[in-house]
Simulated scan of single mutants.
Amino acid sequence: MPQPRNWSHNYAYGSYRGFEQLGKVLKLADYLPENSSHNNLDWREGFREHLEEDERSDNTITSYLSDLNIFVKWFEKTQGNFAPNLITALDLRDYKRDLLLKSKPGTINRKLSAISTFLIFARDAGLIHSIPKIPKQVKEQRPGIRWLNRPEQHGLLRRVERYGEQRDLGAIKVLLNTGLRVSELADLLWSDVEISDRKGSLIVRSGKGSKRRTIPLNKDARSGFLLLGYDQHQGTDQPVMVGQRGRLTRRGIEHMVEKYRGDLDGFSCHSLRHTFCKNLVDGGVGLEKVAALAGHESLETTRRYCQPSYHDLEKAVQVIGEEED
């Protein structure tokens, strides 16, 4: 077990028994003095360092710290002063019960996961002796993955060709043919891309979980990078995705792509990544290769693309029909 950091504190219980002798029923949180170590914010910074050392993404760190702050405010409102060693299993069950009244299952599960991660950190840092029982996560039906079938892909590209900019068409071609996450495209530099007449590749240096991977580029992907300006910028440390005000953020790319949704229901920029994976599976590419190209940590994630869509089922029943249309 890791040694406690130098910012950890021993939260003294004091002579709580003396209060019992006075015949008063008190909560421990009420006994802790205002200037005791439970008010010290060092454990917050320690938790942030723990998440950073665990190489959690910036979004995860921000979400977990926010979720923890919300739990602390709830605890202070319902129990009084907060300290990590005051958290009980009953508190956690009550908090979950409160969340069930106003939050969706995914949000509840994320908040419980943030608290669980914090308690593991607190135990390893010596802030608590043991971890109280964490409530079970809420079961939820996983929404179906939205990918585009071939007619939808062609319709999207047709809209961009007719009404969009060269940059937009290049970006959508790249996303459809590389499976890059939007954040990965936003981080991509021209020095990460290499193209020749008949082949090409790109390097994702900071994928999910800080995993690096190399993606070969087919002709459509190479065409997309040429539209984005490969000939003018190849080999430089300039970002691939730029707008009038400089480098495009993840949200900027999402907004750029989603304005071409047309009549596509449930479409988002991330649908292009799903489409890349689905096209590979439909083309007979093995799950191990799909997982490697997409940067999936588990084959279970990739296996979702083997689940048939309604369009797949329509094609399946046509196979056994004998009457001609």
Rank of each mutant, 00 (worst) to 15 (best):
P132I: 09
L156C: 15
Y16V: 02
I253L: 12
F75Y: 11
G18P: 02
E53T: 08
E20G: 11
L227F: 10
L99P: 06
A171M: 12
S8N: 06
E288V: 15
I131D: 15
D42F: 09
E254Y: 10
K27A: 01
Q3K: 07
N39G: 15
G246H: 09
E297P: 07
N59I: 06
S66I: 05
G18W: 00
I253H: 06
C306A: 14
G286T: 13
S116V: 04
L180N: 08
K73R: 10
G106S: 14
N149P: 08
D237A: 09
L175S: 06
L119N: 12
C277D: 10
K259P: 03
W147Q: 11
I115V: 12
F71L: 03
N109F: 08
R303V: 04
L92M: 02
R247V: 05
L26M: 13
L92S: 01
Q153H: 03
A316Y: 09
N6V: 15
A291P: 12
E76A: 06
H9V: 09
H233W: 14
Q244D: 14
P143M: 09
V242Y: 13
V285E: 07
Q238L: 15
L169V: 06
R303I: 05
S57N: 11
T236F: 09
R247G: 01
L228P: 08
S57F: 14
H270E: 14
V319N: 11
L101V: 15
T275M: 05
L28P: 00
R273C: 09
D325C: 12
L148I: 09
Y260E: 07
A171F: 05
S183K: 04
I195G: 05
L217K: 03
R273Y: 02
A186D: 01
G284E: 04
D312Y: 12
S36P: 00
E322T: 13
D220E: 13
L188H: 01
P33G: 01
N69I: 04
D124H: 01
Q166P: 00
G179C: 11
D237Q: 12
C306F: 07
L313R: 10
R198V: 15
H311E: 14
D187Q: 11
K133Y: 07
Q232Y: 07
V285R: 09
